[in-house]
Simulated scan of single mutants.
Amino acid sequence: MLIRSIIYSVLCFSSLQLNAQSIARRDSDAIPAKLESIYTRGLKYLANSQQANGVWTDNSGHYPGVVGLATLAFLAHGEDPNHGPYSSNIKNCINFLLESQKAENGYIGTSMYNHGFATLALAEAYGVVDEPKIEKALQKAVDLILSAQKRNPKGAWRYSPDSKDADTTVTGCQIVALLAARNAGIPVPDSAIERALKYMSSCRDSGGAYGYTSRGGAKTTLTAIGSLCFSLAKQKNADGFDQSLEHLKQNLDYRDTHYTYYFEYYMSQALFHADEDLWKLWNDKNIRLMSVTQQSDGSWLGNRGPAYSTASALLSLALNYRLLPIYEK
């Protein structure tokens, strides 16, 4: 598709400009027609149900984090954010994120979950979306994450910028956002990443699985988050990484019934970055699962609303396209 070719070239050119590795796809990596049909139907749902102010009216679609995930879902398919059929949807998303940022401290939304996913979206949009305000907003968003970490005794994050405790879900979200921002050319100190990964390690048990706030009560979803953070930080040789991968390998048929699409979103990325052959096995199952659970209108249903579920479900499939810098090897 012409639009996808154009956006692919722009992304690669932007990555080269920013000294980032270009995104590699082999010629043999054909996109299955079934996958393309699933993805385009999902995007049409998001486009048709989005409000003019960039949000969705379901129970979580007005949160910046959900709008950020939807932004990523469009960009991950190679949609042209400036002239394509979904350009107005993407611009509406970006405008909402920019308008949601507090001028005094750069905070986006009312929780660090929202801030982290919104920051990730701005990082992936930077250099691709024709909106000069993104650079300043992204820098302020990163500064907020870093200042919150400095104030946190654990060197990590939880629900608010002033939290004194931490957990692996919020912390994982901030780590990915920081690494994406760094990839986009925003300075992020090595010490910040190292301190955050140290906290994540403190929540990993002897079998490589991650708990929520400690080594106890480890879960596969949390293990996927932890594994992804170390992969993106280029620390796959770190202690415990192989054990975490083995845990994921032993749970390829796992389904998180409460955080279904949150799990799918992280599991796809964790496996892709850790072991591409293992990801392929999981990906085939995931395509089939997303096919049978997709609704007739192109959405996916979940307890946090169809906008969130649909964006997350699409992003669990987006590694097949590999058009976002955060998906590079």
Results as ranks from 00 to 15, higher is better:
residue 193 I to F: 06
residue 8 Y to L: 03
residue 137 A to D: 10
residue 284 D to C: 07
residue 142 V to R: 10
residue 147 S to Y: 15
residue 217 G to K: 00
residue 208 G to Y: 00
residue 140 K to Y: 12
residue 196 A to Y: 07
residue 128 V to W: 06
residue 237 N to C: 04
residue 248 L to V: 10
residue 292 V to A: 02
residue 273 H to V: 00
residue 204 R to D: 08
residue 51 Q to N: 12
residue 115 H to G: 08
residue 190 D to C: 02
residue 300 W to T: 13
residue 293 T to K: 02
residue 150 K to A: 15
residue 14 S to C: 10
residue 298 G to T: 05
residue 159 Y to H: 15
residue 250 Q to D: 08
residue 100 S to Q: 13
residue 186 I to C: 03
residue 121 A to K: 13
residue 244 S to K: 07
residue 45 Y to M: 06
residue 177 A to L: 10
residue 70 A to E: 05
residue 220 T to W: 00
residue 6 I to M: 05
residue 255 R to V: 02
residue 111 S to L: 13
residue 138 L to D: 10
residue 201 S to A: 05
residue 129 V to N: 01
residue 31 I to H: 07
residue 2 L to M: 13
residue 295 Q to D: 12
residue 311 A to C: 04
residue 297 D to I: 15
residue 285 K to V: 12
residue 168 T to G: 03
residue 196 A to C: 08
residue 149 Q to A: 08
residue 34 K to R: 06
residue 179 L to A: 11
residue 114 N to F: 00
residue 318 A to K: 09
residue 10 V to M: 04
residue 270 A to D: 06
residue 114 N to G: 04
residue 1 M to D: 13
residue 238 A to N: 05
residue 211 G to T: 13
residue 65 G to P: 07
residue 121 A to E: 11
residue 243 Q to W: 08
residue 329 K to R: 11
residue 215 R to F: 12
residue 16 L to G: 05
residue 20 A to S: 11
residue 10 V to Y: 09
residue 261 Y to I: 00
residue 153 P to R: 15
residue 26 R to S: 06
residue 156 A to D: 15
residue 7 I to E: 09
residue 227 S to A: 14
residue 278 L to I: 07
residue 115 H to E: 14
residue 140 K to I: 10
residue 88 S to T: 15
residue 298 G to L: 12
residue 311 A to R: 03
residue 185 G to E: 12
residue 31 I to W: 07
residue 105 N to H: 13
residue 235 Q to T: 02
residue 248 L to F: 05
residue 168 T to V: 15
residue 276 E to V: 01
residue 35 L to H: 03
residue 194 E to R: 11
residue 259 Y to H: 00
residue 255 R to G: 00
residue 199 Y to H: 04
residue 232 L to W: 04
residue 194 E to P: 10
residue 132 P to Q: 13
residue 241 F to Y: 15
residue 11 L to Q: 03
residue 208 G to K: 00
residue 193 I to A: 00
residue 270 A to Q: 05
residue 215 R to D: 01
residue 250 Q to C: 02
residue 6 I to C: 09
residue 163 S to Y: 10
residue 250 Q to V: 03
residue 186 I to A: 06
residue 162 D to I: 14
residue 128 V to D: 01
residue 217 G to I: 01
residue 39 Y to F: 10
residue 265 Y to Q: 12
residue 247 H to D: 05
residue 101 Q to W: 13
residue 149 Q to K: 11
residue 201 S to D: 14
residue 121 A to F: 08
residue 283 N to L: 03
residue 171 T to C: 05
residue 285 K to P: 07
residue 280 K to T: 01
residue 272 F to R: 06
residue 118 A to G: 12
residue 55 V to E: 11
residue 11 L to S: 02
residue 153 P to I: 12
residue 258 H to M: 01
residue 21 Q to G: 05
residue 224 A to V: 02
residue 247 H to T: 02
residue 256 D to R: 08
residue 120 L to S: 04
residue 256 D to M: 01
residue 308 Y to R: 02
residue 56 W to R: 05
residue 26 R to L: 04
residue 252 L to K: 09
residue 290 M to I: 08
residue 315 L to E: 10
residue 76 A to D: 09
residue 327 Y to I: 10
residue 239 D to C: 03
residue 182 R to Q: 12
